[in-house]
Simulated assay, not measured.
Amino acid sequence: MKKFVLYNNYATKNIKDFKDNFGDYLYTTINEYDALLNELKIANIFTKDVYRKSLYNILSNKNNNYNQTLIINAYSFDYLVFKDKFFINNNPHLILDSAILIAKILNIKNIDILIRSYYNKEILINTIVEAEDCYKFENEININIYDENNYKENINIYFLERQKYVLDLETVIQFGYFAHMGLDNFSQYGNDENKGTCLISFSGDIPNVDLYEFQFGTSFNEIIKASGYIYYNNDIKCVFTNGFLNAPTTLESLNNKSLSYEDINIGNGGVCFIAENRCMLRIVMKIIQFAKSVSCTKCMPCNYGFNLCEYYLNKIILGQSNNNDYKNLLNAVEMIIKGSSCLYIYNIAKCIIETIKMFEYEFIYALDKKITLYSFINK
């Protein structure tokens, strides 16, 4: 990962390294929550997820939340984004430090950290033990670590959208840096509208598949150059800028934009580059299969609709379709858009239909020739 502003490769896995780099835990050093929140309002930090909520607005809701649970979502759904594992491996104490402060501000006594089963849970467990030994907060707040195999409910989009306090891991980390640095130092990064930085996960048909950090206000021209695409043999056909939650766009259109909440919803920061010789029918199939994998299957448009999409698209790819299958594919996606219960699934479906429309010529070619444009599959 590129060392730039706030994040770096130096791991602070133990309490001594953390105290050397950051000092004491925030909840022991910050007494005036109102003053911190006023500075947070100026910093204008938003959640790094599809919902893009103001962190100031979330933390200003300081009602009697004693029985509420603060959920730290380190269970990233998008396989194009690989930040959570990095955060856990490199700076677990800042995760815990920030989460405890957020819980104290909101008057919440329970924190659930949700991770993938293949993440190193021992790192977080050791972090909690070290922090409890050092700061003795175990009687003030209850902290639990869960994966998909042992949580009280299925970890899915429907469940997460029903919870009142859910924060993605990058937002928690960003808040921790902000609180430790103070507004003046934090404001040196970013621009007038958006302070701080954002992590970008580069993936796809580029040489530099990795995590990079950029200040808000950085031009996408500079961001794209960091991906190394100019040294690649194939031209880039399109770019997905929020995993599969934004419609695809072109390099040309991105060159006129900057990294901000206004120009483009960067969301989880997953930027995927698609080469010119990629078959877009197969890209759409990957998006559909990803959508199926994260669906909670509780509502018919999502559960039934993506199966329909997969069925019709398979017929087109295999050269066994007609124009009705293409129309039925579009109708199935429209059904999901109109009837989906989750904003996350809604955005994925919007991405699917915009991708189909943007590359309609490839679908028409497959319908006419019974072979996809970039494929050796023939009937």
Rank of each mutant, 00 (worst) to 15 (best):
N208V: 01
Y51G: 07
N139P: 06
I348S: 00
T47K: 01
Y326N: 11
G270K: 06
I356H: 03
R278A: 05
C272Y: 14
Y189Q: 01
T127Y: 01
I283H: 05
E32D: 08
I15T: 12
E130G: 11
C238Q: 08
G176S: 04
G190N: 03
L70K: 01
T29F: 07
D84Y: 09
M358E: 14
I128C: 12
T29H: 04
L373N: 09
H93V: 07
E354A: 11
I72P: 00
C309P: 02
G339K: 02
D325C: 14
I352Q: 04
L281Y: 09
N277R: 02
K3H: 13
E130D: 10
Q174Y: 08
M358T: 14
Y51L: 06
L183Y: 13
A74T: 04
I105W: 06
I236L: 13
I266Y: 13
Y66C: 13
Y165P: 03
N331R: 03
N38V: 05
Y365F: 14
V50H: 01
T12E: 03
T28M: 05
E276S: 13
I287M: 14
H180R: 01
L37M: 00
S340L: 01
F77G: 15
L330Q: 05
F202W: 00
A43M: 08
K62M: 10
E161F: 04
S219K: 14
N142K: 07
Y326K: 11
E148D: 15
